[in-house]
Design a protein around this nucleic acid. Structure first.
Lengths: 201, 201, 201, 201
DNA sequence: AATGAATGAGGGTTCATTCAT
DNA sequence: CATGAATGAACCCTCATTCAT
């Protein structure tokens, strides 16, 4: 027996998959009807509009990652470790939900009015969390705004290339990204070498 | 007197702006007609379809950045410097053409058939160029695929947040990103510390 | 209360009339909308495309005439009489459905793919029926293919000139055509033979 | 060097072929432009409209067959022989010009106004010619209108099935049709009369 | 709760034709 | 003569949504 709420979640899940695959605009309510097995009119019992479906996806997802990140940070005290934990959680979460990630990133601009606002707020809360973590770490003098967005870029861009069924494991991906963000692509960096070399060799 | 080619370029330019603003699918040919000042049917003298317009934008743009990158690398021999030059060119170019960047990134999946293929090839050539640069630099043992895509993520994500009219200058942005990618967010000392600490660790 | 099927048949009927009057290509879906009293979009609830409407007309009609012909032949054993029965049925049927006849004849080449194929098959079954009747009658040594097509020409051409509201009754038309096909325009023929055989010639 | 008139005739010829193949309505001026090698606007130097092109085809063609029929009848005095001559000419002419035949038959209703009227008159003259021939032959008591249209049906229907490149020679086709029309499909009868008449013939 | 039926608005594209050059 | 460029009107069809049942 499926409850009304189950049916809504089934719908939201189907929508996530199809929006991710085809794009929000390119998906018709008929597509959703077909894919979800619900009648076209039936969908409107659970949702006021196509846009509300998108809203639900994005709202739920931001709420979920945010809560997940908070949980992942619990007990971690070292600032650098906390950044690493955030990165690891973000990537493990989204490599497991590539479709949500795509819908979040790609359909970022489709909502309007109240829905838009609420999603924006949820998103801001999540972004602000990373922001605060970055501030608490002793860092290279780069623009912190740039650093934050850059890190999100590193992580979120994976929706364009990462294949969860491929050889790269999510944890490994997370480690690589964390290492790249924290220490950079070059080996132990030049300054470090200089420092290490100066006193005792 | 405007030549036929000028008119086409005007059209492509208008389309780039509107596609970037509203998205390819959300833009109607009537929108383009209005914005370009050409009649709806007149557009079809220069372009076989709405998709061809997208194709022209993407094809031209990839051709252009690729040529620009090659030019920017000319005379630069140090491997690390070459990576930096690539990053700087990419970011200076795209901060000056945010709309193109958005259309390239956001409408990456709209084309089909031959057009898709050709754009894919142009893109590959450009990506491969960065790939080769990364290989020639002595680097931290991270998955090179991950490193390349991650760098593109850092750079391309700017279409979601960077405001060319704001306070961050393109060159400064480029420097920050390059530094972040090459040396990481943490201050240079850190690896040295690890090294120093290892004997006792 | 009109059932969904009634509405479809109403639509098919309207389409038959207008396609016959104006031609398939010259008829717009808006014309059909106007004439049927259904909204433009509403039409697409019953039919996938304008071509499907044409398909339905042709498919139903060939199915109908074929069944009618088979019924008309029932119990008729004399080969010559069977040919006559076929002719009579064909002409009585189509003089009563001039619009269908026109759409069948005039729009014979508009369909493509599966629809075309299916209509072709239905048509072939009907034509083959006449073919077999002609073979079973003792006949003048003319090319049988020519004879068959010629007879269809005699009958089908009426869509270009026959007026059901005029003075010529369908049955009379059928008799005339049957007599022309079987005995020819010139007198003599069988009576002539009888005459020749008679004593006083 | 091609004269202006040659160019027009080239255009009319091309149009005939394409109208026959695709239908008048389904043929665009661009199709004609492509097929004729003339520019789209250039066509309008020779012709006021697409409809005028159809008019020229039909007008010329009816004029031509009519003149041909008159010539074919010259010197033939026997009424029955005259009917046969008409049939033979009609079929030999049109098997050699299948495309014209199709355009004449299939696009019979496209013209309007003066053009329509003039074509109608030319057609009437030609039809009346057959009419008069049929009246002068001693015939079976069928409705003469029916007989005339029926004969045209026998002959004109060939545009739906006859293949000039096939095995049936035009002359043979003409003989078969003439025999069918004059003597009918059933055997002998008639020859018996001829036999009976021969002693004194 | 669920759905078949219905629709106004709008989508991309093609058309016959005109006109400046 | 010839043509590239241009366009208003119209094409078939799809859309998100509503409503009677």
């Amino acid at each position: 027996m499926t409850s009304s709420d189950d049916r809504l979640q089934h719908l939201v899940g189907t929508a996530t998959a199809i929006f991710a695959e085809r794009g929000f605009r390119a998906t018709s309510m008929r597509d959703l009807s077909r894919a979800s097995g619900m009648s076209l009119a039936g969908i409107y019992h659970y949702v006021r509009s196509k846009h509300e479906l998108l809203f639900l996806i994005q709202d739920q997802c931001f709420t979920e990652v945010h809560a997940g990140a908070v949980a992942a940070l619990e007990g971690v005290t070292d600032p650098e470790e906390r950044v690493r934990a955030f990165i690891r959680h973000h990537l493990v979460f989204f490599t497991g939900h590539m479709d949500k990630m795509k819908v979040l990133s790609h359909e970022d601009d489709e909502l309007e009015g109240t829905m838009r606002q609420q999603v924006r707020e949820r998103k801001r809360a999540y972004v602000d969390l990373l922001w605060s973590l970055l501030h608490q770490v002793d860092h290279r003098p780069v623009n912190p705004v740039v650093a934050g967005y850059t890190l999100f870029g590193m992580m979120n861009w994976i929706y364009t290339w990462y294949n969860p069924a491929g050889t790269i494991r999510p944890e490994q991906l997370a480690d690589d990204v964390a290492r790249l963000f924290l220490y950079g692509y070059l080996p132990s960096t030049r300054p470090a070498v200089e420092l290490a070399a100066s006193p005792g060799g």
